[in-house]
């Protein structure tokens, strides 16, 4: 069964988490420094989250068809959920087509060390949000 039952739930959880990342004193400044225009295209359930870390405040929009990302990452919402738990090897996911990346991949790869602390932050965030059931063991 899919982790997220609806686009609204996915939006609430991941949208809120992205905002948490932007506000994080360790991760946030590095994301801003990267000035990345990225769009996540999720399926099962469907949702698109567009992020522009070059803007102040950082832009986070949902289902914005007009957004022109530099990099677009497409995946099932379940893959994203496992990724933010640190349970998905990005390169393996790309190799196996669990993720599709459009645009300059080095920009994404460069961010991997930056977002590493997020793997601990995500389960913590889910618990704070009362979404303990979503935390993967």
């Amino acid at each position: 069964m899919a982790y997220f039952q609806s686009s609204a739930e996915l939006k609430d959880v991941l949208g809120g988490f992205f905002q948490r990342l932007v506000d994080d004193p360790e991760i946030g400044p590095k994301l801003r420094e990267a000035k990345l225009k990225i769009q996540f295209q999720y399926t099962d359930p469907p949702l698109s989250i567009s992020v522009d870390t070059g803007q102040e405040p950082v832009v986070i929009r949902f289902d914005d068809a007009a957004f022109k990302p530099e990099v677009q990452l497409s995946m099932k919402a379940d893959v994203a959920h496992r990724f933010w738990h640190g349970k998905v090897n990005l390169i393996a996911a790309l190799t196996r087509r669990e993720m599709v990346a459009k645009g300059p991949i080095p920009k994404i790869l460069k961010l991997l060390p930056v977002i590493k602390p997020a793997y601990d932050l995500y389960p913590e965030y889910l618990r704070e949000k009362g979404q303990e059931k979503l935390v993967l063991k």
């Binding site: 990099v71 790309l94 190799t95 599709v100 990346a101 459009k102 645009g103 300059p104 991949i105």
Partner: peptide, 8 residues
């Protein structure tokens, strides 16, 4: 637009 990147 359509194909630069990985596994596109």
């Amino acid at each position: 637009e359509d194909y630069s990147g990985t596994q596109t």
